[in-house]
Design a protein around this nucleic acid. Structure first.
Length: 506
RNA sequence: GUCUUGUUAGCUCAGCUGGUAGAGCACGUCACUUUUAAUGAUGUGGCCGAUGGUUCGAAUCCAUCACAGGACACCA
């Protein structure tokens, strides 16, 4: 039984006693007329009053009891609403006869949501409080809250029962408020630039736009499988073909892959596409975007991230090849051709998969020796064409693409490029992916001939970018697990034996 | 996927080389009308993650499983 615990039984009994005495333990009759934050602001002048109180004022506040100190005929109660914490002074003789002794002291406790009316005053210790003349229960909590001092620290419980985490940990609420602001500011930033927010399908007939394994679901009416999208890219580009010149979408992507500190099966990204622009313009708008975020989030431009300090006023830009030597410390002669890279990697005890091409090997050098050293925001540009299947080639050097990735605190935050809009080239790149798939690469891109057909009608020269919102929020809130910036991160179900057996049979 | 560390009261944690469980908070009872994790007294509370094994005896040792944290590999 779910409520067999004796503490819960005790509390159920208290709820019953309240009800019998005419105090509905689940009352819907809230008369709150201010929030804690407003109360504290409006009455801050009471601190300077000679009497340290103003009995002519009267407010009704509501909140959850977080702390309760009963001292005989008077008590101190700390209640918390979304805006903050307020101390209430409750004295027996200010409440209706017998209520304090028989109801308040006996049946109201930490975790309950109450409503209190009274006037502002300042205690002997100098805390602006509320002197109660009325108190009623709004909602009885029949499960006890975790311990008041240590709160709840078990990560498993924090993620599985996020509501408890939010009740107990104010800084967690802060993190998610920041996340909400980041998304809201992002939307406003792009809208103000004239971008149109769009919604493209979450269920795709072909999972395209990235190399990743999709989740599969089934559409009964059509009798066909659908794939939860791994990226919105190909649909957003269809909109550019259609004549929209600046579009963005902030939404979820789904990838059927591993979970760890930086990966959740569903994650949020913004992708935006901007016609008649190049990746150079995207570098500018990205800098501007960060400046905008920091300004409106009121953050210092030098932010701590773990042991690191990230200076968001120090944006760097460096071509990938150059970064290998200047940042990665790889000797220039070891970057020039396949054989010397392989020899260098082997000399550093790094295993090299057979069949890697020049561009992939350069990418390998970058991942091994450069990425983690990019602390301040750094645009790595000029990616090899082999590892940039959807990016436009440089007109000057066909071996590299007009692309950048933005790295901050040793981690990739954004990926952007001038888009490939040559339908014949796109078709042959898809065909290349099909061959890779036939050779066993199960993450190779699917052929999307509908998308190629769209390109065949002409897509204006366009630059597009994706930014991982979860990782961005991690950076801004100094969180080191993606689970700490997702309200409800993916968790394995806690299965009972029957379910386990069924899973094994399936 | 691999390695590694956890899982003991509602919560936070002790429990040594095996001898059938402890603390603090919370909760119950009592005292207390300006406390700040209030205080003092007193009491209740546990199938020691699950299943097997070793043993006279297992929270403790071994194996398997489940879930979680961390690291590595792949990916955003």
């Amino acid at each position: 039984m779910i409520f067999e615990n004796k503490f819960i039984q005790q509390r159920i009994e208290k709820a019953k006693l309240l009800k019998e005495a005419g105090h509905n333990p689940y009352s819907n009759d809230s008369k709150r007329n201010t929030t804690v934050e407003k109360y504290l602001n409006v009455n801050s002048d009471v601190v300077d009053m000679e009497e340290k109180r103003d009995e002519k004022r009267h407010y009704i506040v509501s909140g959850r009891i977080k702390l309760l100190r009963i001292m005989g005929k008077a008590s101190f109660v700390k209640i918390e609403d979304e805006s903050g914490m307020l101390q209430i002074y409750v004295a027996r003789d200010n409440l209706p006869k017998d209520f304090y002794n028989t109801m308040f002291k006996k049946n109201i406790e930490v975790g309950d949501i109450i409503e209190v009316g009274g006037y502002p005053f300042v205690t002997g210790k100098g805390e602006l409080s509320l002197h109660a003349d009325s108190l009623s229960i709004l909602t009885k909590a029949i499960s006890p809250l975790p311990e008041k001092f240590h709160g709840i620290t078990d990560k498993e419980i924090r993620y599985r029962k996020r509501y408890l985490d939010l009740i107990m940990n104010a800084e967690v609420r802060k993190t998610f408020q920041t996340r909400s602001k980041v998304i809201s500011l992002t939307r406003r930033f792009f809208e103000d630039k004239g971008f149109l927010e769009v919604e493209t399908p979450m269920m795709h007939p072909i999972a395209g736009g990235a190399n990743a394994k999709p989740f599969v679901t089934h559409h009964n009416a059509l009798g066909i499988d659908r794939f939860l999208r791994i990226a919105p890219e190909l649909y957003l580009k269809r909109l550019i073909v259609g004549g929209f010149e600046a579009v963005f979408e902030i939404n979820r992507n789904f990838r059927n892959e591993g979970m760890d500190a930086t990966h959740n099966p569903e994650f949020t990204s913004i992708e935006f596409y901007w016609a008649y622009k190049t990746y150079k313009d995207l570098i500018d708008i990205t800098k501007e975007y960060f400046q905008y975020l920091f300004e409106h989030l009121d953050l210092p431009t030098v932010l701590p991230y773990g042991d690191m300090e990230v200076n968001f006023e120090n944006f760097q830009e460096i071509p990938l090849i150059e970064s290998l030597t200047t940042i990665g410390g790889v000797p220039a002669e070891s970057c020039n051709d396949k054989e010397s890279i392989i020899a260098y990697l082997k000399s550093k005890n790094i295993s090299v998969k057979p069949g890697m091409n020049f561009g992939q090997l350069q990418g390998e050098l970058f991942d091994e020796f450069v990425e983690e050293k990019l602390i301040d925001p750094t645009f790595i540009t000029e990616y090899p064409v082999e590892i940039s299947p959807l990016a436009r080639r440089s007109d000057e050097n066909p071996a590299i693409t007009e692309r950048f990735e933005l790295f901050i605190a040793g981690r990739e935050i954004a990926n952007a490029f001038s888009e490939l809009n040559d339908p014949i080239d796109q078709l042959s790149r898809f065909e290349g992916q099909m061959e890779a798939k036939d050779c066993g690469d199960d993450e190779a891109h699917e052929m999307d001939s509908d998308f190629v057909e769209a390109l065949s009608y002409g897509m204006a020269p366009t630059a597009g970018q994706g930014i991982g919102i979860d990782r961005l929020v991690m950076l801004l809130t100094n969180e080191h697990s993606i689970r700490d910036v997702l309200l409800f991160p993916a968790m394995k179900p806690v299965s009972n034996e029957e379910q386990t057996t069924q899973d094994e049979e399936n």
